[in-house]
Design a binder for these strands. Structure first.
Length: 571
RNA sequence: CGGGGUGUAGCGCAGACCGGCAGCGCGCUUCGUUCGGGACGAAGAGGGCCCGGGUUCAAAUCCCGGCACCCCGACCA
């Protein structure tokens, strides 16, 4: 492709509305154009990179036994009502009406439709397992689209679904898919963490996320290198530091005027947060729930939500707390009788340690020497704590460290939620019918592109990993208006193409600085410079974008030298 | 949905408090000089200020209403 004919140009200044690195660089490089919030046109550079990613994804899905289909984006609401997921998705689902006023939705995912495929095509255990996948545009009316391709309302996703006669068979495919995902990200040149994940409302057992480490990521993962433990913070468990265990003393009411926070309480009493208990009020689908946890820990709302089996969980408002008979700022599990009708959940941390300080449900007062279960009771003790960096990994053996990252893939076991509701059953060897057991496996293809740029850039621009670069080579002709340069560059352009390289040929009449800066911005893996100076020396100059390694070779040797340089790009 | 912010030339922004002929930089066009890290000079083109009302002799500017976009939080690939 000749730069002089190329559709898009680069921007010299940063676009005003882009904060995130990948968003900014993609706009500056002319890779995409915004059409609406969270909706973008993929211009040639972006589309070429997406195609590269998709090719790798397809190859690995096919190798893992997947069969590609294309399901419709436009779906009748009834498809969603059948499983109740129209309500589950709520406002995230795009709705529209046809000319007969029939209600349709734009699909955010495809479990319902793919399960209907399995229902139609699978009859017996002999027809199982099956893995179906597609690469397609998804629509989700996100509450807040952000950061360009990172979180769009319209985005590209590879979604795969597997169907099984038994749990062991699902497990085999699940593991095979995890391997395929590792291969995909490795082949893309994108180091990715694989972590345990929350499996969400549908509540499958196993779930893993693939997280690309990046500071701008929305997710936090906790890693324990010595033990290999890796989990999303939403899901992670840990062994928090132990609380002191002095001889239990009689509970005492102390005056704590104006004290609202754990820090203030600790300051006043001369103790550490680990020696306190805090009580947090939640509104869980309208019901008030009291969560009690040690003061140095935080409630993990995902865990709590899963425990309670509710759709919506949020902090209770002060008014709601008061209405439930509680005193915000001095809330406490102590003296909270069962009859209030507030469900009480205690974190495991309350069962260890003695003589805690806790609220007194009375403005300006706290209790000291509070001991569980002597002084208060809960309806259930469970792990509802947020694991933190510095905690011991579950089982011990190492300390957790926290990292930010971007979720680019997610695999999980669905069980029979969909097959039961859609009637996707098979006949077993004994002639009995069972719902198929399902797994599902997603990759945010367009997000992978954004994440790749988040992970691979410097102050000058993008540094594309060779496997997903829109072009492999940026051929730059300096003083392109000189006929000797133009002739040499044209010949090299043809030779590189003939050798199978994808080349962006900068034949524009522009200054060296402009061309070099554009090349740095676009970040194609290898830059080849043809110039009067090089011509005089009988060479062309190769420069690798990633590490700046340079090499001078004859024009005749250039195609092979480029190939060699590309091969070493990811090392 | 709550909080914060912004809509003025293709892009980045000033002008707005204090109404008075719409401006700067980049980019673009033409000519000349330059030519290995965003060159220089000269001459040009290009918007009526997000939309709708209102106030006023006069509105980008003041008032009212709307829309859009961005950022921070509750959600996800």
């Amino acid at each position: 492709m000749r730069a002089s004919r190329f559709l898009t140009k680069t921007l010299r200044q940063d676009p005003g509305e882009a904060e995130t690195v990948s968003h900014r660089l993609m706009l500056r490089a002319g890779m995409m154009q915004q059409v609406a919030a969270g909706v973008y046109t993929y211009l040639p550079l972006a589309l070429r990179a997406l195609h590269k990613i998709e090719r790798i994804v397809r190859a690995e899905m096919d190798a893992a036994g997947g069969q590609e289909v294309r399901m419709p984006t436009l779906q009748p609401i009834e498809t969603w009502a059948e499983t109740g997921r129209d309500a589950a998705f709520g406002a995230n689902l795009f709705h529209l009406h046809d000319r007969r006023e029939r209600e349709l939705v734009l699909a955010p995912t495809h479990e319902e439709v793919v399960t209907a495929i399995a229902r139609a095509s699978v009859e017996s255990y002999r027809d199982l397992p099956r893995t179906i996948y597609q690469i397609q545009t998804k629509f989700r009316d996100e509450p807040r689209p952000r950061a360009g391709l990172m979180r769009g309302r319209e985005f590209e996703m590879k979604d795969a679904y597997s169907f099984h006669a038994g749990a062991e068979d699902l497990d085999a495919t699940y593991q095979r898919m995890r391997e395929a995902y590792r291969s995909i990200f490795r082949r893309c040149g994108l180091p990715t963490l694989e972590v345990e994940a929350d499996s969400g409302a549908i509540g499958g057992k196993d779930s893993h996320e693939f997280i690309m480490p990046a500071e701008s990521g929305e997710d936090t993962v906790l890693l324990c290198p010595p033990t290999g433990y890796a989990a999303n913070v939403e899901r992670a468990t840990s062994i928090p530091p132990r609380a002191p265990e002095p001889e239990p003393a009689p509970m005492e009411l102390v005056s704590t005027p104006g004290i609202k926070t754990i820090e203030e309480l600790c300051g006043l009493l001369g103790i550490e947060p680990v020696q306190t208990l805090k009580a947090v009020f939640y509104n869980a689908d309208g019901a008030i729930v009291l969560a009690t946890i040690r003061g140095d820990l935080a409630v993990n709302e995902v865990k709590l939500k899963n425990l309670l089996h509710v759709r919506e969980l949020r902090l209770a408002t002060p008014e709601e707390s008061v209405a439930a008979g509680l005193t915000p700022g001095s809330t406490s599990p102590v003296g909270l009788p069962e009859r209030l009708g507030v469900r009480r959940i205690g974190d495991g941390s309350i069962t260890q340690g003695t003589n805690f300080a806790a609220g007194a449900n009375r403005e300006g007062y706290h209790y000291t020497n509070v001991n569980y279960p002597r002084d208060f009771q809960v309806d259930e003790v469970a792990d509802i704590a947020t694991a933190q960096a510095g905690h011991q990994a579950p089982g011990g053996g190492g300390v957790l460290e926290a990292h930010r990252g971007i979720e680019v893939g997610h695999v999980f076991k669905l069980g029979t939620f969909f097959s039961e509701r859609i009637g996707a059953v098979f006949t077993d060897e004994a002639g009995a019918q069972h719902p198929m057991i399902m797994g599902c496996y997603g990759i945010g293809v367009s997000r992978v592109l954004a994440a790749a740029i988040e992970q691979n850039h410097d102050e000058k621009g993008i540094i594309f990993p060779a496997p997903i670069a829109p072009f492999a080579v940026h051929l730059v002709a300096l003083n392109a208006d000189q006929s000797a340069v133009a002739e040499a560059a044209e010949a090299l352009y043809a030779a590189l193409g003939a050798a199978g390289h994808e080349v962006l040929y900068d034949d524009r009449v522009e200054s060296a600085g402009v061309k070099f800066n554009d090349a740095d911005l676009l970040g194609l893996p290898v830059r080849v410079v043809v110039s009067p100076r090089n011509l005089k020396n009988g060479v062309v100059e190769l420069k690798r974008r990633r590490d700046g390694a340079t090499e001078q070779v004859t024009a005749a040797d250039a195609p092979a030298a480029v190939a060699a340089m590309l091969a070493r790009d990811n090392l």
